[in-house]
Design a protein around this nucleic acid. Structure first.
Lengths: 222, 222
DNA sequence: CTTGTTTATGGCCCCGAGTGCCAATAAGGT
DNA sequence: ACCTTATTGGCACTCGGGGCCATAAACAAG
């Protein structure tokens, strides 16, 4: 651990997370993730293979960059939300903040997320990251409701929040001209209309709006 | 491919999916998933390591068993739902059917799901299975709404349905005496109350019920 | 009984990810 | 010059996974 900016003693670091990440993304873009070996990345970054694994615990972690820091930001955003906001609004606000992008990095972020969401090995690995993310949401919800983070309600809120975010992200990647924040804002109403048993009016020209009558009665209604 | 029950010619199979699965679970139970090598499983099943990989594409696939067949069942259940049911109810019904368990296998299923949901390597790998599952749900919803499966609404329904199921499963594993179907039925109302901005009354003794100001619209709880 | 044909088996060898170990390196301080 | 400290990176190893291919074990036809 480098202690802040203190130089201290010892051999200086030969590289950085950012440098490795840049070298890796160049190769991923050129040959794809699976056809790029860790040796390739290490060589491109001018370091030894063994050193690379001290910066990133696995090849799969490289595309995620410094995700831990983002999580701290998410936690901080939630903590700053006034207590009288509905939990749904608080979470939605935090998700929007979490995914706010500077215009200059939006294409870079799109490339990163494309990699993460289309490469099977990365899709799989990402779950571990999502779990931490969900836990932050669940902890906040638990605090607001006076429950434990692994009670059913907070846990469900974590899962559903992630579901909505992923849904928005996938849609964002599909539509080159869309804006991520727009899609994130859309998922909540979409969910609400679904839960209330009413078909959302399709935004595409081909869709026919069909109205549902709720009469099943065995389970859902209190 | 064995063609139905026709014996035909050729060397008979030395084992079966079920036999490998049984041998594997015994070892997983004894030493844990990570400390069991593929060689161990093959030896225990009395086959060669190379043969094992012809029955299961990867070590991670062994705990999932024959999941494809279950997916066909899910598809069939959805297809059999009358068209005038609300989509939410149809999906909920299909999810319940999908997770219906014979009393004799409930403990076995619990063991399997514990393995799948607590082993990091399996948590990660399971995403690929979940994707197929979500796709079945999204396809159905798309058909009902007259949309494409990768439009925002069907995709979101797939994600949210999975989120609710996983939430129920995790809770089920935490509470030894709970019933999976009960929990699956609970997640939908939990989601509804959350979306409508009203705190669900905590069911645990320690929780203090905290009511949110419902600035967001209609209240449904008594 | 012998000779094909068919199909599954499993050994051999390879690759890539990831880890433990440890000597070498490059700083700062005394 | 010498010590302390921290990072580097090479070597060897394990494990998951896949390509290749000779071989075993069934059945059918001669």
């Amino acid at each position: 651990m480098r202690s802040g900016s203190g130089p201290g003693a010892g051999r200086p670091q030969a590289t950085s997370h950012a440098a490795i990440e840049a070298a890796a993304f160049a190769l991923f873009d050129e040959r794809g993730f699976d056809d790029t070996t860790v040796d390739d990345i290490a060589t491109a970054a001018g370091i030894g293979r063994r050193t690379l694994f001290r910066y990133f615990p696995s090849k799969n972690d490289i595309p995620w960059g410094r995700f831990d820091d983002s999580l701290s930001g998410l936690r901080a955003t939630l903590a700053a939300v006034p207590d009288d906001w509905p939990v749904l609004d608080a979470v939605h606000h935090a998700v929007m903040e979490f995914n706010r992008l500077d215009d200059t990095v939006v294409e870079q972020h799109r490339q990163r997320m494309t990699l993460l969401l289309t490469t099977p090995a990365l899709q799989a690995h990402s779950v571990l990251r999502y779990t931490e993310w969900r836990h932050v949401i669940a902890e906040y919800a638990a605090g607001r409701y006076g429950l434990a983070p692994d009670d059913l309600l907070p846990r469900t809120i974590g899962h559903v929040s992630l579901a909505l975010s992923l849904s928005a992200y996938e849609q964002w990647l599909r539509e080159p001209d869309s804006r991520l924040t727009d899609l994130l804002s859309q998922t909540a109403p979409v969910l609400r209309s679904y839960v209330e048993g009413v078909a959302a009016p399709p935004r595409t020209a081909t869709g026919r709006a069909r109205r549902q009558r709720g009469s099943k009665g065995t389970t859902v209604r209190p």
